[in-house]
Design a protein around this nucleic acid. Structure first.
Lengths: 256, 256
DNA sequence: CGCGATTTGTGCACGTCTTCACAAGCGCCT
DNA sequence: AGGCGCTTGTGAAGACGTGCACAAATCGCG
């Protein structure tokens, strides 16, 4: 395991790209590393240590090193990682070496915002089509793109090579839209509608539900509040004492 | 472990709320169960089996039962779960029994969409204030709320009891905004800006980055594409065969 | 009243992820 | 050239999450 080789995007000879099947948890963090690396590159850093990159990405350095080690050996002991090289590598692994076309379905409140979000373009994604089921919206121009009817999806997909579909419709419309996307060959879907989608095997769906995020935060607020409400006994009682749950479980003792 | 007791919200006598510290993974799924339960309740179901609820929530039934068992025993063997009771319980645990006030900072593209998103109000959250650093935006009315300057945060927080802060600003503004939120006592933050926030201990931050979700999907697209590109050898080679990585590791053998 | 069908709750084993701790490797300085 | 400090890459251990499979419990029916 040495001999600093670069088997990734640059220099591969059309052979097997050698995509190691990374742990999901690692994949989920790579984009964060990538963002941090771009920041570092802009501020003139040429190399960065695992400690430095880890803190910029908000993770611990051991985790970062293990994550990067899954891509191969791109660091130099005693020095750190070459920022530019690492960017290249991560972008290759993530499949960002070429711009990916995104079809956005549903130009309501959220869809509008997504259509105008410049964070996509700056990170290798191009919104290639806006679609909506509401004929009243068809023809509207958003951010330089004309809204088309969702029934024209097949034609649109034929013109542009759609890589990813984004669903920003109400929940009731999401499943049919997903079916249409799958029908035209889309195998990756980002779903903002609050519902579960059923898709055939081989199609990846990621779900983002803004209300769920708030509810998770709400839980922690609730927990924190209930903690401070127990000045003396509370703090220790719920850190898993043997009798910690006695307050509720005593009833069981009575029952038996 | 029996004696169908209801120690949760309804009927507790001001004593310890007995909030068990749930596994994070469970907490993250509870909102999904809650949404599915509301759907079931609307369609007239009074009870639901773990199997039924699990499929409605998109998880497997064993996981669902284990998740719910952490809240206590609210099912009836041979019957299933009482939908209304379970809703009550989950809402209590998540701290949704009273409406939570949310302060939204940054009314740009995304902020606008969030301000108009009705999925918040319908699930126990009330956007209590809109704030922005841009004085040109102050005074603008969005969805019945007047945009105020972010420097007025202290006053706003005094009027409304802000429970959660949402950051929808550009990355460069996010950290100062977070500091201001923390300064007025906010201990839960939902961050849409693509950057890591540093906050004091005790403050919870959840991050939603739309571009990251796309990048994760991009990875899977890339992987799927590289799979289909290897008709014969590929399929098996990268499912962790001993020699699967030989294509790249042979270089090492040459090196040594 | 008892029995069978049904469904929950959970012990257990397995896999994944995280963290620690340290050997191996690299560059620099003398 | 040799040694020293620094940093990566990785084995091993522990924590955490998942899924199976089954005992316990409940309802309905004869």
């Amino acid at each position: 395991m040495s001999q600093h080789r670069h088997p990734g995007a640059p220099g591969r000879a059309g052979a097997v790209p050698a995509l190691p099947d990374l742990p999901e948890a690692t994949v989920a963090r790579l984009p964060e590393y990538l963002r941090a690396l771009h920041n570092l590159a802009e501020s003139g850093h040429e190399t960065v240590s695992s400690e430095g990159l880890a803190s910029a990405a908000g993770v611990n350095s051991a985790k970062l090193r293990k994550d990067l080690s899954h891509l191969g050996s791109y660091g130099t002991r005693g020095v750190g990682y070459d920022v530019a090289l690492l960017i290249e590598q991560i972008e290759y692994v993530l499949g960002l070496t070429h711009c990916r076309a995104v079809a956005l379905v549903g130009v309501g409140n959220l869809g509008h915002a997504l259509a105008g979000y410049d964070g996509f373009a700056s990170r290798g994604f191009r919104i290639a089509a806006l679609l909506d089921a509401d004929r009243a919206r068809v023809g509207e121009v958003i951010n330089g793109l004309v809204v088309q009817h969702v029934d024209d999806l097949a034609r649109v997909a034929a013109e542009e090579s759609i890589s990813i579909g984004v669903i920003a419709t109400p929940a009731s419309a999401a499943q049919p839209v997903a079916d249409q996307l799958v029908a035209v060959g889309v195998t990756s879907i980002l779903n903002f509608a609050p519902c579960v989608l059923s898709v055939p095997e081989g199609v990846d769906v990621r779900k983002v539900d803004l209300a769920i995020e708030l509810q998770i935060l709400s839980f922690h607020e609730h927990r924190k509040a209930s903690l401070t409400a127990l000045p003396a006994t509370g703090g220790s009682a719920l850190t898993a004492l043997p009798g910690g749950l006695a307050a509720t479980d005593t009833q069981e003792a009575i029952g038996t």
